[in-house]
Design a protein around this nucleic acid. Structure first.
Lengths: 125, 125
DNA sequence: CTAGAACCTGACACTGACGTCAGAGGCAAG
DNA sequence: CTTGCCTCTGACGTCAGTGTCAGGTTCTAG
C-alpha cells in the first residue's frame, strides 16, 4: 500500500510516517518513481511505534529497543534488552507519579464539592 | 525567603520560579531593590505547581484551575471547577494509555526472556 | 488526454517549559 | 572597600515530533 493508505489505517499523518522512516524506525520499498510502498505488516508496525511514542520513548530510544521486537533472541544486543527494561521501569515510575497527581486532583475536587454543598444547604435555609 | 532558597527547598530552578510568576501562578513581594521575597507557604505552592505540571497541565490550564485551590467555594467560577474535573478525566485516560503501553513492554520483555531461555537450554545440550 | 488526487523532497514554523548568557545591581563578611 | 555570591531584566537557544508550504512529479479515473 502507499503512504496515504497506511496513514489512514494506522491513524497517523503522512508527515509522521516519513519522519519515522527518517529516524530509521520504519522501512519502505520504493517504486521506480520513488514512491513508498508498504506491506500489510506496516500497519501494526506503525501502531507499535505510536504506542512506544505514547509511552514517552524518544525516537532514538525506540530505535535502540526495536531490535528486541524484530529479533527477540539473544543475538539481540544485551544493551537493547536492558534499555527496554529500563524504559519499562521509567514508565512505571511515571505512572506512579501521575497517579499521585490524580489523587491530588481528586482531593481538590472533593474539597470543592464539599464547599459548594455547604454553601448550597446554607442558602437553602 | 529569597528566590534561591525557595528554589532549593522546592527542588526547582530559579528560572522556573520566575517563569511561574510570569505566568501568574506564583506571587512574590518585592523589596525596595526589586528582589523577590516569599513566605513559607510558597514552598508548598511551588510543589503543588510542580505536581500539576507533572500531570501534563499547561501553564494556562493551571492558571485557570488555581482559583479552585485558592478559594474552594462556589464563588469560584464554575468553569474553573469543570476544567479541573476535565483535567482529572484527561489524566485518567492518559494513565490508562500508559498502562497499556507498559503491558506491551512487559509482553515484549517476557518474549525476549523466553527466547533467551530457550537458546540457553539449547546450547546447554 | 486530462483533471485532480496523491506523492516526492526540502525547509521553515510551532509549541512550551525551561536553559543559558549578558550586563548590571544588591548584600553580607572580612 | 572589596570580594564573592545572589539577584535582576531581557533575550535568545533548545528539543522533538509534527504542521505546513513550495514547487515539482506521478498515478488514476473518466
Amino acid at each position: 500500500m502507499r503512504i496515504g493508505e497506511l496513514a489512514r489505517r494506522a491513524g497517523v499523518s503522512v508527515r509522521s510516517l516519513r519522519y519515522y522512516e527518517e529516524q530509521g524506525l520504519l522501512e519502505s520499498e520504493r517504486s521506480s518513481s520513488g514512491q513508498r510502498h508498504y506491506p500489510e505488516a506496516a500497519v501494526d508496525r506503525v501502531i507499535l511505534l505510536q504506542r512506544l511514542y505514547a509511552g514517552g520513548l524518544s525516537s532514538r530510544t525506540i530505535g535502540e529497543v526495536l531490535p528486541c521486537v524484530d529479533r527477540p533472541s539473544s543475538d539481540t544486543s544485551e544493551a537493547a534488552f536492558e534499555m527496554m527494561v529500563g524504559e519499562r521501569d521509567r514508565l512505571s515510575a511515571h505512572i506512579e507519579d501521575l497517579l499521585r497527581t490524580r489523587d491530588m486532583l481528586d482531593e481538590l475536587i472533593a474539597t470543592n464539592r464539599r464547599h459548594n454543598a455547604t454553601l448550597a444547604s446554607d442558602s437553602a435555609r
